[in-house]
């Protein structure tokens, strides 16, 4: 049963730690609980988004630099 990782905050979603760095995780990557999969920028402060279940990232549901709402699905983990 795939699980959706939800954004804990409203803001801008980033998949990379910095513009010139590779993405934290790509589709198909295995993740453990607590792995960072992205950042949410809210009012200029950056908050890590961590996996709450272990598994494989099936799909990202939000793009890099996309504005997101709190509770919006960011990725599907199975």
């Amino acid at each position: 049963m795939p699980k959706e990782l939800l954004s804990p905050l409203p803001g801008t979603f980033y998949r990379r730690p910095a513009p010139d760095k590779p993405a934290y995780k790509n589709e198909g990557d295995e993740v453990a609980i607590g792995d960072v999969i992205g950042l949410i920028e809210v009012m200029k402060s950056f908050n890590e988004v961590k996996a709450e279940t272990a598994g494989k990232i099936v799909k990202f549901l939000a793009d890099n630099e996309e504005p997101v709402m709190a509770g919006q699905p960011l990725a599907e983990i199975a």
Partner: peptide, 12 residues
């Protein structure tokens, strides 16, 4: 203003 939704994208 009353009812204004403060956007999360800019400074605080």
């Amino acid at each position: 203003y009353d009812g204004y939704q403060v956007p999360p994208f800019y400074d605080s």
